[in-house]
Design a protein around this nucleic acid. Structure first.
Lengths: 277, 277
DNA sequence: CCGGTTTGGTAGTAATACTACAACAGAGGG
DNA sequence: CCCTCTGTTGTAGTATTACTACCAAACCGG
């Protein structure tokens, strides 16, 4: 939609173009404004706004607002609802799921494709991959291990800080460490990353804030963004976001090593058959 | 959005409910209809439609249309996009995240609030909770353990089928087992559930298909729905969905045991302080 | 300098969303 | 059984809002 406006920008008259750039600047605002309000803010008049909508091939302002709303990413406006003590199960489900869904949407926005590209390049060529995490992030590390070992790359997950630092010490250049930390300020993880770098390994940090010690200690930083809802015992949405980042990496590497991946996935699946009905 | 309507359905007056069901049936149509047209089609009147919008917490019909439009998935976006070999990192991110996001949306639709209610009731009163999972689902079980032990209920995660079946045998009435299985047909899990039931424990199954041996063996069935994208080494989206289901349960129980939960969460956080910068 | 064309705004109209209020139905008490 | 009271629903009216007809500049070639 916004792309469509940008595309037609050249064919518009001067005043319409002012409307267009306003829409491109604050698309969210436009949804809750009336024709005349938009006209005011752009220093134009009502009919100009209408003509702008027509120029896009729509019937009028109403239709324009609807179309715009449809193509804008939903999560922005949707208010951050807190789960409360007397919530019905249905309300609870909705609130938790939308919070998690929003975390995904926001992370998708924040995640830097260039950094992901660098991470994929390092992982693809890695001689060995180690995943480090503590506490809740330990689960994510193990999940990553589960996903990567099928791709034919020697790897492991370490969830004990002593093991992490010892293992980091014996890594070689070309090896990769992926450290997961929600808080981004775990002393143990930072220490292990320093040791790993000292050994010549490439370090990747999956964190929730751009500026944090773990990110600073990593060569490649993958950042998730989340706002947690109250009464979640601990970071939940961020875990979902981190897992999705791992998913991206796993799928990315799988695609770049397609033959090996397909073969190993098949082997793993066949091995499981006898465990099922 | 539609979930919100469904949730509030019971609190609505009869005529408003007619409007609600029309919206649920043809949400796309509503976007291009006026108040009176909606009133006509539902056999009600203008103010009723407005009142319906107000009941949802919105200011009026206009805002309702905008919100609805925002939350309705744009037609082209809902297509299930496969990640392909030559995808740029940006495309990869978008595809994996939207697939996961869709899994959440679909699970939110499918998940039965009544069953969740029953699960919460059982968990809240549980003398002891055990989480069982194997392979990838083992991560989910451990994650659940991480979230529940802070709530002041004795619990553990078991990811070894021998430990599971032995532990299940010594459970007591009032204890709860939560079994996570993506395939839903793991022999080991089904066996453990039978043993747990035999011991008098309440069994909850978190699965991806309604009709599967694990669901059949559980007292309470929580169902996630997912369509996996190709080249994901293994069920990824379903893991996200299962984790979210666990989140719902954890938040639900935390809210019902607010005092204990708040106290323990505080203790746990303070204990972590010295591990951070 | 002047018609014709393009562009932008004013004022008016039709529609739409919204509101005040009255009619009605059903529950509960005399 | 009637009567009141509460809550629900529709009617009629009002105020916005979107949209249109029309007119006034600005622009441009002849």
């Amino acid at each position: 939609m916004l792309a469509l406006i940008r595309e037609k920008l050249d064919n518009l008259r001067q005043s319409e173009r002012r409307v267009a750039s306003f829409v491109l600047e604050k698309p969210e605002d436009v949804l809750y404004l009336s024709v005349s309000e938009v006209a005011d803010r752009t220093g134009t008049s009502d009919p100009t706004v209408i003509r702008f909508c027509r120029a896009l091939g729509l019937s009028g302002f109403q239709e324009f607002k609807i179309e715009l709303a449809r193509h804008l990413v939903p999560p922005y406006k949707s208010i951050h609802e807190e789960a409360e003590a007397g919530d019905e199960p249905a309300a609870l489900i909705r609130k938790v799921f939308t919070a998690n869904s929003q975390a995904l949407a926001e992370t998708m926005q924040v995640l830097d494709p260039a950094e992901v590209g660098r991470a994929l390049a390092a992982l693809e060529r890695a001689g060995r991959i180690e995943f480090y995490g503590l506490g809740g992030s330990g689960m994510v590390a193990q999940d990553a291990y589960h996903k990567f070992f099928r791709l034919g790359i020697p790897c492991t997950a370490l969830i004990d800080p002593h093991m992490q630092v010892m293992s980091a010490a014996i890594l070689k250049p070309g090896d990769v460490v992926v450290a997961i930390s929600h808080s981004g300020s775990s002393k143990d993880i930072v220490e292990s990353l320093h040791v790993a770098r000292g050994a010549g390994a490439t370090t990747i940090g999956i964190v929730s804030h751009q500026a944090c010690p773990v990110a600073a200690a990593a060569d490649i930083k993958l950042c998730c963004h989340t706002r947690e809802i109250a009464f979640k015992p601990e970071p939940m949405s961020s875990r979902i976001a981190q897992l999705s980042v791992i998913d991206v990496l796993a799928v990315g590497v799988a695609l770049r090593r397609k033959e090996v991946a397909v073969e190993n996935l098949g082997k793993a699946r066949r091995a499981l058959v006898q465990k099922r009905y």
